[in-house]
Design a binder for these strands. Structure first.
Lengths: 148, 148
DNA sequence: CTGAATCCCATCGGATACTG
DNA sequence: CAGTATCCGATGGGATTCAG
């Protein structure tokens, strides 16, 4: 099955047409051709949200602003190092805002920027998809593995 | 700035409320707690679309079904090995269908499954976001790097 | 509390060569 | 054409230690 010959509509989500996808691929190609040196924005985004922690941090900050230590406790399994590293990356990309309160002991609060909030919507629809189709995917894997 | 205290609406996209995000986090937590052994569907999805080639392949197959060699030419920079490996992964997850035509020489056509098509919508809205906000992000990086 | 610096290993993915 | 197998360098990320 494929997407040929028409418009695929998804319940409640924006419609996707072949034209859209074609334009997208063209957009990507354009970046690849014009500046092969590296900076494809799609690649960049995938590298970010593809890393181990960025999405979980964005989802958490989508709920509420939070301090460093609180994030460390909230996000199960993350190391201190990776929390700082990932937050720096998100801050650099303009997705997360870092505010320092000069108290004793020091307090630093992280929050989503407007840009971060705008990304949050797309990310959560993706993670929604993952949760909704978890069993389907799991089933597909079992069937695939069964047929060796 | 943050998402506290209300509903964030995005132009043309589904609305995102704090409740949604909270439920999402709960959903993730549930998986983490109940089966820490590994299989969080969100983690799984991120691992897949976070790898170097899956998204590009899905976008390409969203345009048209295609044979192995054609994909290899279409997707700039991918190695033969990674194309097979990635296609196997996508097939295992039930996102891509593989059809073998027993001709000489052999021909194998890949296409998106209905599940793959349903994911395509979310992915393309993400990559759309990346292209739309590319300059904004680039600017944020420059400003961040400037302030060392 | 918030972080930077170091060490170190597991995995990802590219190059290359070989098969049906 | 459509793969598989091996080798191997680059990178991601955890544990630990030190600093303001």
């Amino acid at each position: 099955m494929n997407a040929k010959g028409g418009t695929n509509s998804f319940d409640g989500h924006p419609q996707v047409t072949n034209t859209n996808i074609a334009e997208l691929n063209q957009g990507i190609d354009a970046w690849v051709e014009n500046d092969f040196s590296g900076a494809c924005p799609v690649r960049d985004l995938l590298d970010r949200i593809g890393d181990k922690w960025s999405v979980l941090i964005i989802l958490r900050l989508g709920q509420q602003d939070e301090r460093f230590r609180a994030l460390l406790r909230a996000i199960e399994g993350i190391s201190q190092r990776m929390l700082t590293v990932t937050l720096r990356g998100l801050e650099r990309d303009g997705l997360v805002h870092r505010e320092v309160f000069d108290t004793r002991p020091p307090s630093v609060v992280y929050s989503l920027t407007p840009l971060g909030v705008s990304l949050l919507g797309h990310i959560s629809s993706l993670t929604d998809w993952a949760l909704e189709n978890a069993t389907t995917v799991e089933l597909a894997k079992s069937r695939y593995d069964a047929n060796t």
